[in-house]
Design a binder for these strands. Structure first.
Lengths: 121, 121
DNA sequence: CTGAATCCACGTCGATACTG
DNA sequence: CAGTATCGACGTGGATTCAG
């Protein structure tokens, strides 16, 4: 399985999603954009609801996709840093747009929170 | 289960994702934005890789989230149309940013396509 | 034509324990 | 500290069938 199924789907939107979909990727990128550099534990602190397993996996995918760069310091205990690559930097406008919409519409969020959609078995 | 777990997560990016994550939602929105109005079958044609079941489900979620509006014509056979609501319209810049990145980076896509990441059991 | 319902194989993800 | 390995419960989504 390729990390993000990277291939030209013919649809520009789909092409972008191949990189930033994945449950928490956009949020991770958002935080790295905001802080430039983040350690693994710092990301964990900023995303308390994301399990360590998931965080590691998403970061690893972002890394093999060339979006973030991991820098490991061979000290004890180990210290790692994550930052955007040049390629990853190009995603800033996308994350920015997502962030902006989110902050402009906090009031509209939650008003529909009672609608129920189940997929019962 | 709420359709998109709509609630203020405190993170603007996360708030947006609650609406447009979901495997195919962004692509669906992209096509509706581009065509203003689309029938169910037209969306199916534009998204051949999405099963009818999934398309219906994603559309239903977008509808209960107040992003798209469904209009049903009581003719036989039934005819339905999907279009953006005013609320949904506000997402246009977000989809636009995603689309733009995708079309600007078609060349960078696929070059890493051989990296393998497995989650074997 | 537009869905909803059912079945079922498969993937995903949290919890836990372990390594360097 | 920063991951990886394993397990097990759960969710997801395709195929198919049914209905208005």
């Amino acid at each position: 399985m390729v990390s993000a199924y990277n291939c030209d789907s013919g649809c520009p939107v789909q092409n972008t999603l191949q990189f930033i979909s994945g449950k928490w990727k956009s949020v991770i990128l958002y935080h790295i954009f905001k802080n430039n550099v983040l350690r693994f534990s710092e990301l964990q602190a900023k995303l308390p609801y994301v399990s360590k397993r998931m965080l590691a996996k998403q970061l690893s995918e972002l890394e093999t996709d060339g979006i973030v760069a991991k820098r490991v310091y061979p000290v004890i205990p180990v210290k790692t840093e994550y930052r955007m690559t040049t390629f990853g930097e190009s995603l800033r406008p996308v994350i920015k747009a997502i962030e902006q919409w989110g902050s402009e519409h906090t009031d509209e969020i939650g008003v529909l929170a009672n609608t129920q959609i189940q997929e019962n078995h």
